[in-house]
Nucleic acid binder design. Structure first.
Lengths: 237, 237
DNA sequence: CCCTCATAAATGTCAGACAATTAATGCGAA
DNA sequence: TTCGCATTAATTGTCTGACATTTATGAGGG
């Protein structure tokens, strides 16, 4: 095997090959956001393959939301501007898949989630703005409804923590973390909260907002540890 | 736009539709790892579309590494076991793409990286084992070579921190974090380390290993803050 | 027993056709 | 002139049928 270039084995999957070539063009900047790729016919001629093969390659790229296609006279395939929302959705989906398919236990997932979140406590305390506090208080109000289903309670919890990580003001951080938290949601959804558990969570949430308002990151960290322990207790009951 | 159900508009892209259907079958457990999908002909008949369309759908799934295909008599499309390695590679790739395409500045990326890492300091201190320390010390030795290129220095740094997050013993955590760190690597690669900078980083690394060995998570956190500041200084010089 | 060859099943690839969509063009009427 | 509308061209979406390639299996002969 002297050939360890870009093509491990050329014998199969032309469409994967073509997709990879175009992918590299996007990665290295030959193609930038909103550029139009050549038409399918042109691509097929340029790469010496049939249009069907080119189409399969383009579908691969579309599945990674690297390109979008438009029909009609001025249509074609265009390089997608990779938004944080795209990446977020993709990551959350990957995380969900991984967690459900690998039977990750809830303790491990909880531990991971709170460990990650803890990391942004100080940054959030430093950069938080009023609307973050408002969003979090709004979710706390929702959480106080006793009729709320466990699932809705959990969804509100996710929104609360999403606002918390957004408060860091760092898009990379909030994107990564939000995806992680959402990826773990299916597991959290399996928890059943007794009213006592909910009360405990809610008072911790309130204390967290207060700490965030007062910009005391260290206190926020401690509260997060409590919340982790509380959640773990709920999970194991 | 009252319709926000699963199907935004059914009028186009049958292949995306089919892909989504199969995807759901995998997600909800109708299809589990290593299950064989029906053959392309059977699928085309079952969904009432041509084989070409089915193939485009399958390529979409393959691009997300949800399935793999094998040729020959016993061939077909098989549901992939979603390994942590797969998810890791996918996430790192997404992160790289996002960061290069959005011109995330290095300060933001650094801040995110160290914030995330900080979150697992205590857990790592609690769960670390001998081989984690060994791996980290090995990387430190590499980093001491003055002839090391900036790129190799950076790669060793990534390996060092990878070992650090592995020390948490939490696969979800180390998967998420490792992907984040690697995703940021292209940016870190643009840094030029003067010898003085390298020395500073190396002594911090050594102190970190010591703190980890002594299982003092709080000290590890402080050292990480130093390392963040040091890296930011390097970045801005 | 082992080697070879034929066979069947499946994916990979191709060529050509038609349908559907969409912007631009041209033209006629008010 | 300007508005409205049909025409046209370009492009993706889909279908059909064919052939190439790969791979397991089984039959037959040495």
């Amino acid at each position: 095997m002297s050939d360890n270039s870009v093509s491990p084995q050329k014998h199969t999957d032309l469409s994967a090959d073509i997709a990879e070539r175009i992918r590299q063009d996007i990665l290295n900047g030959s193609l930038v956001a909103d550029d139009r790729l050549p038409s399918e016919s042109e691509l097929s001629e340029a790469h010496g393959v049939s249009r069907a093969t080119v189409r399969e390659a383009l579908k691969r790229l579309a599945a990674q939301s690297l390109i979008r296609t438009k029909r009609g006279a001025t249509g074609g395939a265009f390089v997608n501007r990779q938004t944080f929302e795209d990446a977020y959705a993709q990551m959350a989906s990957t995380a969900k898949l991984l967690i459900t398919l690998n039977e990750v236990d809830i303790a491990t997932a909880c531990q991971a989630r709170f460990a990650l979140e803890r990391g942004c406590a100080r940054l959030a305390a430093k950069n938080r703005q009023e609307h973050h506090l408002d969003a979090m208080r709004h979710e706390i109000d929702r959480q106080k409804y006793p009729e709320l289903s466990d699932e809705d309670f959990c969804a509100s919890d996710v929104a609360f923590h999403r606002a918390l990580v957004d408060a860091t003001g760092n898009p990379v951080l909030s994107w990564q973390l939000a995806a992680a938290v959402e990826g773990i949601e299916p597991l959290m959804n399996m928890l059943t909260y007794r009213q006592r558990d909910r009360d405990a969570v809610i008072s911790l949430h309130e204390a967290m907002v207060d700490a965030l308002e007062a910009r005391v990151g260290s206190r926020l960290e401690i509260l997060m540890d409590y919340l982790r322990d509380q959640t773990l207790r709920t999970a194991l009951s």
